[in-house]
Design a binder for these strands. Sequence first.
DNA 1: CACTTTCTTAAGCATTTCTTAAACGGCTGA
DNA 2: TCAGCCGTTTAAGAAATGCTTAAGAAAGTG
Lengths: 225, 225
Amino acid sequence: MTSAELPSLLLVEDDAVLGPLIAELLDPDYRVQLVTNGRDGLHQGLTGSWDVMIVDRGLPAMDGIALITALRSKGIATPILILTALGDPDEKVRGLDAGANDYVTKPFDAGELAARLRALTRSFPPPAPAPVAIGDWELDPTQRSVRSVYGQTVPLTAKEGQLLAALAAEPDRVFTRDELLAACFHASEQPGVIDTYVHHLRRKISKAVIRTVHGLGYQIGDAHE
Amino acid sequence: MTSAELPSLLLVEDDAVLGPLIAELLDPDYRVQLVTNGRDGLHQGLTGSWDVMIVDRGLPAMDGIALITALRSKGIATPILILTALGDPDEKVRGLDAGANDYVTKPFDAGELAARLRALTRSFPPPAPAPVAIGDWELDPTQRSVRSVYGQTVPLTAKEGQLLAALAAEPDRVFTRDELLAACFHASEQPGVIDTYVHHLRRKISKAVIRTVHGLGYQIGDAHE
DNA sequence: CACTTTCTTAAGCATTTCTTAAACGGCTGA
DNA sequence: TCAGCCGTTTAAGAAATGCTTAAGAAAGTG
């Protein structure tokens, strides 16, 4: 992973020893920018694009709480972690209610700080299955629509989607009607159902997508010539 | 994301004394559901709609870490706070890296816990400045009215607003009735409620806004043509 | 407490989708 | 070429799903 892909972190810390120390500690995992007073923190926070911020409480030029309040009032939604020596519960409540997302007291454990930063920056995208490519089309994972490469989307019925998905599962393989019946239907229907749905699909999408192999069945793709 | 009602909170805590105590503590500010083992926690977490969860580490039937891992792997993004006696930094790292968003050790300060829960449930950016666009309409941040592009404003009931907001959260995605039920209702109602509210919305706004996907559910946006 | 609004359920009707079947057309091999 | 099989297309009844309406229950309000 190159440094360009590292998350960006704005560190607002006035302590001349601790600031560089934390910056160095986080350097392998973040692109760290260190500023040493609240005014610079506000400026960077408003103008830059940050994945996460660490803010000290007691800062020259602008208090940490005031800094966070100012950022939030401007609509800055970046996750903020307060890192301070003030460990009193009331102080924590003040900091969190000002808009901070987490609050860690000095002295702090490096591993815990790192884990809390990871918790702030990670996201939980719902598992999205990749769409299946079929020639110039792609089958939506819900199997209820296909989209051409130029944006046109065609809705499918459930059976149409299942049949197309079954065929697309193994391109170039020839499926017999019985195989497709077993895959998409209840195996009690007439094999002729397949023909009907193939026709529906060809009309909706394109004649060329599903190929007939005379005497055998159907196929997606042009395996043999 | 219930605006009118209290935020919902799932508390997974097996201690027979501490569980009810915490539930009572949070009762004024949250709609608290208490379960006492991991299996029930998983079931509630997957099927219910929660604004935030509190999870103990050591649980019968399913460990807290395993519970969080399972929820996250299913795409559940609900903020989770671990509340436990295990205060070792390594334990904190394990819990946070499993997918928790915060980690509080017992004994805990009630005010701090409340503030951390507020920080987790607070949503940035605040819904105020960004009305949700839905075709020719935009949904008011309060979720209680929609306004057409030419100024006409239609008031919505709470449920209507929640349903519309849920659908608008991910345009072009098809939501099943069960998903919408979990998002807007208490998951105990009949799925047919959704049909009724879709009908109300279509009559109030416009037929074209909400699209039916036969056999699956509903969708906002014009995915096809 | 009475009134209004909103929520929820349920039932009948409308629409879409599924399945069958039959007529039509084209491929294959003698 | 012709007969026979196989595939295509169309149509229509059956089944599943969705829409609409209405009315009782619950919640909110004066």
